[in-house]
Structures are given as structure tokens and as C-alpha cells.
Design a protein around this nucleic acid. Structure first.
Lengths: 167, 167
DNA sequence: CGCGGAGTTCAGTCTTGACTGAACGTTCTG
DNA sequence: CAGAACGTTCAGTCAAGACTGAACTCCGCG
């Protein structure tokens, strides 16, 4: 039987976990809604109808990028997995890494066509500048996010900020 | 023989075109550095050693998301492809769409576990707020980018902005 | 109206990589 | 120390989807 929870897990894996293997996304999505928040590998495998091998591999992947945490409860030999509180900041670090990587590729391309007339290089220069902009701005954006974090749900957001930025 | 250009195309396709079919990334990368900036389907197919069918399909894909433009030179029956100047803004529109989609998934998940204690829902709430933040801030970030755009390469960037934001 | 070049479509092939499950190493337990 | 529970690894299977190439449509031209 397919529950609403199954549907959510599948959907979340597809959308939030875009780019990573489906099972990794499912695992992450399940850990976002499970009760209790910590689950053993066996529990996860059962819940997702996946092999232990798959869970092991995906756990390694997710742990590596900081999206889940692996720990042990004292007195229990089994490992438990959970989503750490700073989860999302890891996502940000990954994002900024990819911004840099992309800018560098554009940079390399510009070197490759260095002898072409400036208007021919404009396309690539734009791309380089674009990613460069985000790379530079990222810390400020993150800082702004931390400010907002305190305010919780009903925060003012964009209106106030826009004024400050363009003032 | 594999030229430096080949290497760049391959690398750029992998990094910048992550997520889309390899041939789409290659086509986009080639159009970013080719001379002249407009190329026919046949030229692209030859350059990338790809089939005409593949070029046709990838062209449709890239055109759909606004990453390339299709046009005709007067008096020439053949179509030419190029990277349009507002190329990157399309990328932004795609990005904001995905932000919203992701927030909505998190929202749906919160609805699903509405009867759980608040601390159990915290994980997902954080995720929802996170994507919500970017969704709200996106227009301001883009506005800021347009400002900077004028300044070209040697712009001051983050330093000045940070002060404005936290003032 | 027939021809040829340009573009599209689609059935078939092939590559990639996600997933499985059995074998193995490790660590606790009685 | 034997046994059991847990986690990892890896060779093999399988499915998804990227790519090809031939058939087809469309259009302008002679």
C-alpha cells in the first residue's frame, strides 16, 4: 500500500534531491519527517524497501556532503542517522563551491579565446561575471539569512531589504 | 585529435550544464565560444561529431528554457543558433521556479505531519523557511546584480554591499 | 511538379549508473 | 572463543535515457 508519506518521500526526493541518486533523496526525505528523528540503517532499509547495501552507500554519500549525521546511542552498537541542525548551511557551502567551479571554467574559456576580438568574448565574459557576482555576494546573502532566521515565519522580508539595498 | 577547445567544451558541459543531457551542455558550451557566434545546426553537428537528430532535440530543449535562440538570416533558409544576451536571466527564472517548487514540497510535508509535536516538525520547518527566504529575496538579489552589471570587471562588489545590508 | 536541402521524428541500440544480494570484515556478547 | 548482529564491499543485474540514423515532412526553386 502506498501511503501519503510514501508519496511525499518520492516527491521530495525528486525535487529537493535533484541530481543525486533517487535512493539518496528518499533517505534524506524520510529522515526529514520520521519519528523519532534518529533512525537505524535497518529501519531506513525496511521503510524504503531498499537493500542494506544501498542504504550503506547512500549514507556515505549524504554524510560526505553533510546532509545527514551518523552517530551512536550510548550502549547501542547500531548507528543511527539523522538530519543535523546545520544541514542547510552545508547545502550553501556546496552551492558556493559550485559557483566558484563554474566561474573558473568560464575563466579558462576566456583564456582559451584570448586572441579573439572583445565582442566575441562578451558572451563568456558575461557568464563569468554572472557567476562571479554570486560568488562574491554569497556571504552577504547568508548573513542576511541569519538575521532573518530569528524573526521566524511572519518576517517582513523582501520589502524592507530592497529599500536598504537600493538606498 | 582533441584540441584545447574540445577539452573546454567537455568540461563546461559537465560543470555548467550539470543536470541536462551531455550533448545539450556541449552545444551550449560551443555556442559560448564559437566564431562567429551564430552557427547552423549542420555546423554544430559537425563540430561536436553528433547526429543531426541529436542536435535537433537538444536545440529544442535549450530553446525551451531560453538558453539559446533560434533565428534565420534573411535570404538563407537555414536556421542559426546563438546564445542570447539575456541568457542568464532565464537561468534565474528557472532558479526561482525551483525555489518555489521546493518550498511547496516542504510545505506539503508539514501538512502531512501536522499532528506531530512542534519539535518534530522543526526539521522540515527549517527547510521550508530556508527556501522561502531565497524565494523572497531573489528579486532584491537580482536587482543588486543589475546595479553591479554596469560596473563591469573591476567592481567593488561585496564590501560595499555588506555595509548597506547590515546598516 | 519534381528535386534537393533543411529540419524533425522515432524506433532501435548502447551506455551509464542505480540498485541488489551475497560474501566478507568487525565488534560486541554470552 | 563461538555466535550473532551490524556494517561494508563488490560483482552482477537491470532500467533509464542519451544518442544514432533512416524515414519522413516541409518549403522554395527551377
Amino acid at each position: 500500500m502506498i501511503t501519503d508519506e510514501d508519496a511525499f518521500i518520492e516527491e521530495a526526493a525528486r525535487v529537493i534531491g535533484a541530481g543525486m541518486p533517487p535512493m539518496a533523496g528518499r533517505m534524506w526525505a524520510f529522515l526529514a519527517i520520521c519519528e523519532p528523528p534518529e533512525q537505524t540503517a535497518a529501519e531506513i532499509a525496511t521503510r524504503l524497501r531498499a537493500s542494506r547495501g544501498s542504504v550503506s552507500g547512500m549514507a556515505r554519500l549524504l554524510e560526505q556532503v553533510g546532509l545527514i549525521r551518523r552517530s551512536r546511542r550510548p550502549g547501542d552498537r547500531r548507528e543511527v542517522f539523522s538530519i543535523p541542525p546545520d544541514n542547510l548551511h552545508r547545502l550553501m557551502e556546496i552551492a558556493v563551491f559550485r559557483l566558484r567551479q563554474t566561474r573558473e571554467v568560464a575563466e579558462a574559456g576566456l583564456g582559451l579565446i584570448a586572441d579573439r576580438p572583445p565582442e566575441s568574448r562578451a558572451r563568456l565574459r558575461e557568464i563569468r561575471d554572472f557567476y562571479g557576482f554570486f560568488e562574491r555576494e554569497w556571504p552577504a546573502i547568508l548573513a542576511r539569512m541569519h538575521e532573518t532566521e530569528q524573526g521566524a515565519d511572519a518576517a517582513g522580508g523582501i520589502g524592507a531589504r530592497k529599500e536598504a539595498a537600493t538606498a
